[in-house]
Amino acid sequence: MSESTNSANDIQRPSFDVYEAYQHALLDEEISPPLAAILALTQLMENSTAGTMFELVKALNDGAEVLKAKSSNPISLNAGCELFIAFVTLFPHDSVSFADLKTKLIRQGQQYAKEALSYRRKIAELAVGFIKDGSVILTHSYSRVVMQTLLLAHERKRISVFVTEARPRGLGIKTAEALTAAGIPSTVILDSAVAYVMEKVDFVLVGSEAVVESGGLINAVGSNQMAIIAKAANKPFYALAESYKFHRLFPLSQYDLPNHNSRIFSFPRLKSSVSPRAKRTPDELSVAPTTITQEEISQNNPDVDYTRPDLISLVFSDVGSLTPEGVSQYLVGMFAG
């Protein structure tokens, strides 16, 4: 009787909500989606009743699928999940029991997330060496590592920054406000004015959602066109990326990105009962004018885009300054154990 009661209690016991843990981690503004995913999977491991490595890895993969399904843009968090699961799978150990191994893995996951918060400072120190006194920089949207780099550069050199508005979310305004508050001269420009301003800048500096296996970059939409224009103007295009954003993904075009769906760039159905080919009178055309909202525009457009590796000058990371080819080599080594 006692055994059956305990079994029933185990079945009824509320399961761990990995997505809730992920969202809670993101409440810390210093935690980016890949790190939040690693922290959430570490907590999942703590709460797991897995008795073997096979069961534990399956639980982690299931948790990663939950995070992916509930996120509108899973690319960045996928990189964190992929890195953590590879770490667990390849972790060398001489543990006497699975429980001991599990404790070590949990401790290592927590320690990695803690240490990873220092990566932005390492990247900033590296990137500042490439910034000359008096530089005029163009950046895009909002990036924690870009902000840290610009603030550090401002402490040591004179810089000024053009920031794209970064529609539809307008995060470039957040960047410009933070720069202005720190005393850095900055100007917000329209996304459509990138080509206009390019001849005034010394280089482009952007953050990243992920750096993929080809050495290409996934970042806030608009990054690709900036890179194309920078290449045409012979201006360096630098990307900043923590190594936990390196992702084993190999897109060949914008439409290979995991977050692409049929909603993006779709054409709305005509609400009028009049045939599209039928001739309309001026009175018919003036009836019921169409109103397009910013929300509708946002829903019909991508959040991120893909920049080819040949458009990127260097990727600054906590593991060094890498060419796009160097990123590919590093990724192969990272997941080869």
Rank of each mutant, 00 (worst) to 15 (best):
T5M: 12
K132P: 00
V212H: 02
P302G: 05
A181G: 06
Q299R: 10
L150T: 03
V211F: 01
F91Y: 11
Y196A: 09
T175K: 02
G326Q: 01
R156Y: 15
S2W: 09
L56V: 06
V204Y: 00
L190E: 08
T42K: 02
E82S: 10
P276E: 05
G172Q: 04
R144T: 13
G109P: 07
F91E: 03
S273P: 05
R13T: 14
T164Y: 01
S275D: 14
A278I: 00
L270M: 14
T89D: 15
F16T: 05
T175G: 02
S192F: 11
E65V: 10
P302S: 06
A116M: 07
L152Q: 08
S253V: 00
D100R: 13
K231G: 13
V201Y: 04
Y330E: 07
K102E: 10
F250S: 12
S4V: 14
S76W: 01
R121I: 06
E213F: 08
N73T: 14
Q111P: 01
S192N: 11
L105E: 02
G134Q: 04
K70L: 14
E82H: 07
F250C: 03
V332D: 10
L217D: 05
R280Y: 05
G326R: 03
N9G: 11
I312Y: 04
L249I: 03
S186K: 03
S7F: 15
I228L: 13
I229F: 08
M334D: 07
F203N: 04
P289N: 07
L270T: 10
S214T: 14
V206T: 11
D100I: 05
F84Y: 15
P251G: 06
I11H: 06
D100S: 10
D305Y: 05
S317F: 03
L217Q: 05
A116Q: 11
L190N: 13
T281D: 09
P168V: 03
L27G: 03
P251M: 08
T175H: 01
N47Y: 05
K58A: 13
A79M: 05
T291Y: 13
I228Y: 12
L41W: 02
R248D: 08
A181W: 07
Q254I: 12
S286G: 06
H24E: 11
Y238S: 03
D256R: 05
N9S: 13
R269C: 07
